Amino acid sequence: MIQTVPPTTAGAHDIRQIVERILSAGSLPPIVQAGHPALRQRAARFDGQLSTDELTRLIAVMRQVMHEAPGVGLAAPQLGIPLQLAVLEDQFDVDPDSASLRSRVPLEFLAILNPQYTQVGSGLASFYEGCLSLSGLQAVVARPDTVLLEYQTPDGAAEQRTFSGWQARIVQHETDHLNGILYLDRAQLRSLSSNAEYAAHWAEPGIENAREGLGFDDGPAGISLG
């Protein structure tokens, strides 16, 4: 069960210092792992803590870190920055059977600030999911298959956009990061697998064999956000 997530105690000055340190380092920052406090706090809403130039440079660094990892999304708390900012992009070449079953289509690069999502309809999809901040592990997560995302663009415009299929999963995963939630909080824990064991036993488009072999229910894990 997800307990009430505490807000970050970092103020604008603290956030700016962290970002300045990253931007001046001369190398890409590491992705922090589970146990880092920034991953377990509700990040601060972006309200001008960074200048336009700093925000633009930070987004560029985050995109590069995401590509290098490699991944399809990265949230600022994964770099130790308690700020509601995430980058998303999915241009991977995926097996056609997996892409079809998972409704996975390319996602053009997108930077989002202060996002919130709401479920559209009642459909759920259950698939294995991983995280760059939980290196080496995967687990099955049931998520809404369509969501409406409300967010701000880096230039300050308010946007609404509907995502479905794998894109909806990416959007939810990264928005959860900004609220101190890791995918394991929503996962069927009996499905938890190392990458090596997943590759050896469960690497297929669906989860039917994993569900039978590991003995889990692929419905939503009983959680509360209250």
Score class of each variant (00 low, 15 high):
1 M>D: 14
6 P>F: 11
14 D>N: 11
16 R>I: 06
16 R>S: 09
21 R>H: 11
22 I>R: 10
23 L>A: 01
26 G>K: 10
33 Q>V: 02
38 A>Q: 11
38 A>I: 02
40 R>I: 09
45 R>L: 12
48 G>R: 10
50 L>Q: 02
55 L>G: 07
65 V>M: 09
66 M>V: 02
69 A>G: 08
80 G>A: 07
82 P>K: 12
84 Q>H: 03
84 Q>I: 08
85 L>D: 05
85 L>W: 04
93 D>W: 10
97 D>F: 00
99 A>E: 09
100 S>A: 13
100 S>G: 07
103 S>F: 08
107 L>A: 06
108 E>Y: 10
109 F>Q: 14
112 I>A: 09
115 P>H: 02
118 T>G: 05
126 S>W: 08
127 F>S: 08
130 G>K: 04
131 C>T: 01
139 A>L: 00
140 V>G: 01
141 V>Y: 06
144 P>L: 08
145 D>T: 07
148 L>C: 05
156 G>W: 11
160 Q>P: 00
162 T>P: 01
168 A>Q: 03
168 A>E: 03
169 R>Y: 04
171 V>Q: 04
173 H>K: 05
178 L>Y: 04
179 N>C: 03
181 I>Y: 09
182 L>T: 07
188 Q>S: 02
190 R>T: 05
193 S>G: 00
195 N>C: 02
200 A>K: 13
204 E>T: 06
206 G>K: 10
208 E>D: 14
209 N>T: 12
216 F>T: 00
216 F>W: 01
219 G>A: 07
221 A>K: 15
222 G>I: 14
222 G>T: 14
222 G>E: 15
